[in-house]
Design a protein around this nucleic acid. Structure first.
Lengths: 333, 333
DNA sequence: CTGTTAGCGCGTTCAC
DNA sequence: GTGAACGCGCTAACAG
């Protein structure tokens, strides 16, 4: 059972072409100080041997791996799946590879994986929504170049994020415009940055609209959490619900419908993220479209800039767009 | 702007501990032929300097990178997302890293990415549903160790796959048991292996049930394709539809419902895959649950076996489980 | 048990 | 313009 032909090295090519190792290296790297005739001979030899320089050896001597790492809390989460997709394609377009690590929602793992994967790569994209701010700031120092997704850590640390605050404000305005005066917010994880941003928007809305009741209910981040919240939502007497994300909204919608509640006639529901299936529920989900894949692509651009020029770009803030579909409608009389 | 402290090398540790490089290497790698006292001194020195061996240098000399590659056709496809997730977690549990590459549904890219990523890793997991069989068999020779997902390429090439044939047979039996005698199959990509397996099951069913009409309609692989097929499905007069996958089923269900057709009263719909949202449609989707994450985890086990012992495991076939939900019901009278 | 030497495969000075 | 030598950081074989 012969393994693939024992790695043909640069020495084999040199022998075949009748030149020295250095000449092969130069020729293959397009160094102009090589006699064109020789260069051609080297290329032919390399082609005939199907030679390609070992990425490992190159990495060691060049000090770069042409690879970046991305750490996500959960590869099962549609948002991070899209971030990864956008990042992967953007990096590939620039001939970079992507090492992916799933921290399983554990902050400890996040830290460990970040430093570990960073050592095998040229830079890292970090998605760490739950990591405490002080811990995050301590961590970024040790893993530069680094780009943060949906987090910030002071100047010099590039980041890309969606503006959750303004997006939730848009949703509140949407519901208010439809006549809703009693609204429930299904909160996500307490310590989550994303949750905090949403709460800010709610605070401001309350201040500007004293006539509207916005109640908070403990929620969660997945479909089941949304479904579990259904009884409490129905009991609250609210006419509209802001769910922490689309998964929660879909779980809620499914559960209240099963209980005989009509959406949006009896209850309006709005989600967050615009995951691919949001438009496919019945009714389709009104939501704030977070451009997750674009976030990933932009994260790569930020990282690339760091890699190429070593100068951090400005933090990038992408505004989600309110996407009105069938799950929200006028408040019941 | 000081980069992270210039990589501290094994030489620094050796100096700090007052021993030679080899002793440091041995001590840190748990080589028992080291004086316990010295070993301790080395560990302390390493800890005080926050030293960790360069993965790059280790990879070069050891001939292994502790990294595997996975090539998928589309990171936006829920099935491969789950495969990646299962693979990533299983590999991480064994201290292996995962390099991911998205071929963007292009067979050419698949081939290129496979050989390219393989060179930076110890092995590769290949998801190449559309690659022609002969091309696949030629490719695997050059990238071993390799594990195939949902494909096979002769003995010696480990693979993990779902049994699409038996799963579709189960679905057909399910519909037949509900009294359906006119069924439509919404086909996927022609040249796809997965499609061929489904067609086999249909052939056999036809032979065993001459009284049942099973028509094929051109379909696709995504939500929009399912929605686009709605008029043709309704015009066919069939009482049940087998969709190529859940996305197609959901698109179809959504579209026929919008046209006033009741599911499952007027039309039964069954999908394939059991993607996370299948249980969340209204009605919830009857489908064949393909254990994609488990497929990924098992792919790692197969690859690990190859890496550890160099002996391929037997091809693994996982049977999807028929999951009956609300979208299928008795045939209308 | 420890230190010295020789590579892993390549890019890059430095002399010719 | 080209080759010989050195080094990237580490492990392994070889002496002592």
């Amino acid at each position: 059972m012969p393994r693939p032909p024992k790695g043909v090295t640069i020495a084999d090519v040199a022998a075949q072409a009748g030149v020295s190792l250095s000449t092969v290296s130069r020729a293959l790297n397009g160094n102009p100080t090589v006699d064109p005739a020789l260069a051609e001979r080297v290329r032919e030899a390399a082609a005939s041997l199907d030679y390609r320089a070992s990425p490992l050896a190159r990495s060691l001597v060049l000090g770069r791996t042409q690879t970046i790492a991305v750490v996500v809390p959960d590869l099962g989460n549609p948002t991070f799946q899209q971030v990864l997709r956008g990042l992967s394609r953007a990096a590939a377009a620039d001939d970079y590879h992507v090492l992916v690590a799933d921290s399983g929602e554990s902050v400890d793992e996040e830290r460990l994986l970040a430093v570990e994967t960073r050592r095998r790569t040229d830079g890292i994209v970090l998605c760490a929504p739950r990591m405490p701010q002080d811990e995050l700031e301590r961590l970024v120092g040790g893993v530069r170049p680094v780009v943060l997704v949906n987090r910030e850590a002071g100047p010099g640390v590039p980041s890309v994020r969606a503006d959750y605050r303004s997006a939730l404000a848009d949703e509140l305005a949407h519901l208010h415009g439809l006549g809703h005066r009693s609204i429930v917010y299904l909160a996500g994880i307490e310590r989550s940055i994303a949750n905090a941003a949403r709460l800010e928007a709610i605070e401001q809305f309350r201040a500007e609209h004293p006539d509207v009741r916005v109640a908070e209910l403990a929620g969660g981040v997945d479909f089941d959490a949304g479904a579990a919240a259904a009884p409490a939502v129905l009991a609250s007497g609210a006419t509209a619900v802001l769910a922490f994300n689309d998964l929660v909204a879909m779980g809620l919608q499914s559960a209240v419908q099963a209980a005989g509640c009509r959406v949006p006639d009896d209850l309006s529901i709005v989600g967050f993220d615009d995951i691919p299936f949001a438009r496919h529920t019945t009714p389709a989900l009104t939501t704030a479209a977070v451009p997750a894949a674009e976030l990933g692509a932009q994260a790569w651009q930020q990282l690339r800039r760091l890699l190429d020029a070593d100068e951090p770009g400005d933090p990038l803030v992408l505004a989600p767009t309110l996407t009105v579909r069938g799950s929200s409608g006028p408040a019941p009389a």
